[in-house]
Each structure stands twice: as structure tokens, then as C-alpha cells.
Design a binder for these strands. Structure first.
Length: 428
RNA sequence: GGAGAGGUAUCGAAGUGGUCAUAACGAGGCGGUCUUGAAAACCGUUUGCCUUCACGGGCACAUGGGUUCGAAUCCCAUCCUCUCCGCCA
């Protein structure tokens, strides 16, 4: 969400940003919201002066009453009543205008970083850098669920009966591997100076609307029936929400946190053939990292964050690449975003395993996360990035560490979390 | 889930319809006096948001409504905290 003052002063820039994001249909909203804002300020000024008048007279009434001058007091009461109708009309206008302005402002996207490539949709995202050699072995790599089944590691049939499509049972070594990856990722981030945190897995609606746009909310969030609670889609939601309505002392920045949570997503929309198995699911677990920092530092933190994910995957011998989201694929709140993609030797292409985003001050403005600095108060910048989301990462892990004999190598860094094993042997 | 108490600034806390709500009183923070330095003492200062070129004005006492000329104060609803009981990993 932008500052209305910024929109007022830079309408052409806001419109150009909409063009860059291929949201031309929202361009008229810019002039509309500026007009509503002007009307709102006029109404506010008149209402304020009426309120000022009322306050003054009410004080006089108080003084007269205490002196016992009832008749004079009654006269003054009439004066206030005369203005009451106009004031209540203005107050109604103020409320309506404010609501309209807010609802429009919530749909106007954040200004993207100048470095973001212009493109219509995800097909125009831009590869940035590859890390590691994308190897294609000389034996066939099975579909990930088939690999898991050789270890008796997955039961999708039962999950379907119990919870429906989009859920899974992970079992045995595969489940252990899942937990090992989470534990390793947690320690990996702690070693890099991040503070580990386990947040609430449900959040209130005001936090939901603070951390994401309405479009995302509708497509992602599960609501608890009869309560003002939503299951989190990622721990970013409750981790950023943690700072709602706070004024942070500048000296305590940056906040660098890593959090664990299960994540729940409706995943409205198309499910392709490559999204079977544990690729796109309603429930998964994720280790996340978030940063709250000064505006001038967010660019630097952005680069540090995605680098962490690259390093983590490389430490498990999985080739990855970074992919920059183009303007049209960038969510409305985001200033800049990189996906980290892992190599799939089966598909012979990279696929998304993490997403790193700089939100600028958009979440901070919605949630009122401010910083008390030497030169006054300002909104913080917020960033988030996936450390690792094991169900999906297991696809990359199994495909890249599979041997011709069906066994799976455990990289050195994971062995302490797997009971010292250096290899998993299939039972089928 | 039941019963009770409570929610006022950085913290503690007073105020129970107007005339001490920017908010008493105490503590903390900041600046100063004193001191070789520190402590103590003393003096001053210390909420946020909106609006205005400015002067100024408005709003906020958990949140949202209501009553009133006027609400921290009275009424209704909701949220949260604490204590006790119940239930529970």
C-alpha cells in the first residue's frame, strides 16, 4: 500500500507503474482516489471547525451551569444543536470517503524496483544465475512419488480418504528425511545469525490484510469457521504480524528471524500434470526467514536472503538457479522478488523451491510497523524468503541424490540428522 | 467453558459527567546545575495520528457503537490480560 500523499504528488509515476505491471484497468483509480482524497480533506476541514466550535461552546455551558445560569446555558445548547445535523452529515461523508480511499489504495500496487524486468507474466521471468552443474544421469529418474514408494515413504491413497487431494502421509525414512531437512535448515540459519522462532499458526483477519493483497488472501487462506482466525499460508504472516502496531527502536534493527511452521494453502487455480504428488499441496512445512530493517538496507538484505537459500541447497549438492520475477508476475505488495529454483534431472528443467521478496514499506504501512529513528519516525522495510519447504524440496533432493541401484545418498551435512546414515536403501 | 477483577503515556498509577487530560503523583529516559569524576539532590524536558504555507484546529483513555450541549467516567457489543474453577497435550 502506498502513501496517499505519494499518490497525490506522483500520479504519473503511479500510473506508469500500473502500466509496467500490465494493470491498465486500474489507471482511472489513480485520479479517482486523488479526487476522493481532496473531497475528504475538504469535509474534514469543515467538520473539524464545527467540532472546534462545539468544544468551545460545551466548555462555556459547563462554566454557566456551575454558576447556575441555566437560561444562558440553554441558549448555547441550541447553538450546538443547530450545527449537529451538518456535522453528522459531514462525519458520514468523512467515513464513506475514507473507506473508499482505503479500499482503492489497497488495490494499487507497490512501486516496483527500477531493476525489475518488464514482462506480462511468469513466462517472461528472467534467469539470473545458475549454481552447480545441472546433471542428467544416464539412468531414468522416476517420478518423485515412485521413488518415495520404493522406501514405503508415502501414502497418498490414505491421505485422500482422510483429508482429500492435496494431502500426504510421509513415512519411515522419507518422513525422517523431511524432519532432518527442517532441522538442518533451522540450524543453518541460526549459524548465520538469525533468531529461531515458532509463531502462531493462525492469525486474525487484520493481520491477513496487513501482509497480503485481497487477491492473494482469497486464493490462499483457509478461514476457521465462526472465528476471526485464518490458518497461515506461511510463517511470514505471523512473523511480520508480530510487529503490528509497534514503534521499533532504530538501534534494535535489523530484526533477522528464522521461523518454522506448517503452512496451509487453498491453492485455487490450475493444477497441472507436474503438480501431482507433493509438489502442490494444501499443507506443508517450511523454514522461513524474515527481516525487518531500515529502508536503505532492504536492497542489501534482499541479496543476502536469497543467497542463504542458494547456499543451503548447494550444501546438499542440489543445483539451483535464481529467477527474477518480472513486473507482471510480481505480487502487488512486492518491490522485487527472486525465485530460487532447484534442478530436476527427471524433467530436465528447474522448478521453484523458494521465493525471496522485498516488500518495501507496504506491509509496514498496512500493519503500522514504524521505527523511531534519530530524524523522526518512518515505516520499516520488510523482507521474507523461504529457507526450505521440505515436501517440495524432497523432490529435488531425491532426484539429485538418486543412484542407479535405487539407493539415495545422504549429503554429509544431513547425516547427523539421519542417525549417521550416508545412504538410504530402498525396501522394494 | 464458568465466576471474579482489570485494560489510562515508556512503566506503575490517580481520575467515576464539565471547571487540573497532555493527562495528577511516582519511576524511567533525555538536557542542565552542582562535582576532579560519579552518585545524590535540584531545575527543565519527555504520546501518537490527521489537517494547515503558517498560526492553529481535530482525533485517540483496549476496540466498535449508543446516550448527552459535553463521555476516560453512564449504557450495549466485542477483544485482550490476570486470579480461581472445569477441561486438556
Amino acid at each position: 500500500m502506498l502513501d496517499i500523499k505519494f499518490v497525490r504528488e506522483n500520479p504519473e509515476l503511479v500510473k506508469q507503474n500500473l502500466k509496467n505491471k500490465f494493470q491498465e484497468e486500474k489507471i482511472p483509480l489513480v485520479d479517482e482516489v486523488i479526487d476522493l482524497d481532496a473531497k475528504s480533506r475538504v469535509a474534514k476541514q469543515e467538520a473539524d471547525s464545527l467540532r472546534s466550535n462545539r468544544n468551545t461552546i460545551s466548555k462555556q455551558i459547563g462554566a454557566l451551569m456551575s454558576q447556575g445560569k441555566k437560561a444562558e446555558a440553554e441558549d448555547l445548547k441550541k447553538q450546538v444543536s443547530d450545527n449537529a445535523a451538518r456535522l453528522s452529515e459531514l462525519e458520514k461523508q468523512e467515513t464513506e470517503l475514507t473507506e473508499k480511499i482505503t479500499s482503492i489504495m489497497m488495490t494499487i500496487p507497490n512501486i516496483i524496483d527500477p531493476s525489475v524486468p518488464i514482462g506480462k507474466d511468469d513466462s517472461e521471468n528472467v534467469e539470473v544465475t545458475r549454481y552447480g552443474e545441472p546433471v542428467v544421469p544416464d539412468f531414468e529418474i522416476p517420478y518423485h512419488t515412485d521413488i518415495m514408494e520404493r522406501f514405503d515413504g508415502i501414502d497418498l491413497d490414505a491421505a485422500g480418504r482422510v483429508a482429500g487431494n492435496g494431502f500426504y502421509y510421509l513415512c519411515g525414512d522419507i518422513a525422517r528425511l523431511h524432519s532432518a531437512v527442517i532441522s538442518y535448515a533451522r540450524d543453518f540459519m541460526i549459524d548465520r545469525g538469525f533468531t529461531y522462532c515458532i509463531p502462531p499458526f493462525m492469525i486474525r483477519s487484520n493481520v491477513v490484510t496487513g501482509v497480503m493483497s485481497f487477491a492473494e488472501m482469497d486464493a490462499m487462506m483457509y478461514k476457521i469457521e465462526g472465528e476471526d482466525l485464518y490458518l497461515i499460508g506461511t510463517s511470514e504472516h505471523s512473523m511480520i504480524g508480530r510487529f503490528i502496531d509497534t514503534i521499533i527502536d532504530e538501534s534494535s534493527l535489523p530484526k533477522t528471524l528464522t521461523s518454522y511452521s506448517p503452512c496451509f494453502r487453498k491453492e485455487k487455480g490450475a493444477h497441472g500434470i507436474e503438480e501431482r504428488g507433493v509438489y502442490r499441496i494444501h499443507q506443508f512445512e517450511k523454514q522461513e526467514m524474515i527481516v525487518v530493517c531500515k529502508p536503505e538496507d532492504s536492497g542489501m538484505w534482499f541479496d543476502k536472503l536469497w543467497q542463504n537459500t542458494v547456499d543451503l541447497f548447494r550444501s546438499m549438492d542440489i543445483p539451483v538457479r535464481t529467477l527474477e520475477c518480472c513486473s507482471g508476475d510480481l505480487a502487488d505488495l512486492k518491490v522485487k522478488s527472486f525465485d530460487v529454483e532447484a534442478w530436476s534431472p527427471r524433467q530436465k528443467k528447474y522448478f521453484e523451491v523458494g521465493s525471496c521478496s522485498n516488500l518495501g514499506d507496504a506491509q509496514a504501512r498496512r500493519l503500522k510497523i514504524r521505527v523511531n529513528g534519530a530524524d523522526g519516525k518512518y515505516y520499516a522495510h520488510t523482507l521474507n524468503n523461504t529457507v526450505v519447504a521440505p515436501p517440495r524440496m524432497l523432490i529435488a533432493f531425491l532426484e539429485n541424490n538418486l543412484n542407479a541401484d535405487g539407493s539415495v545418498n545422504i549429503p554429509k551435512v544431513l547425516q547427523p540428522y539421519m542417525g549417521g546414515k550416508d545412504k538410504l536403501i530402498p525396501c522394494k
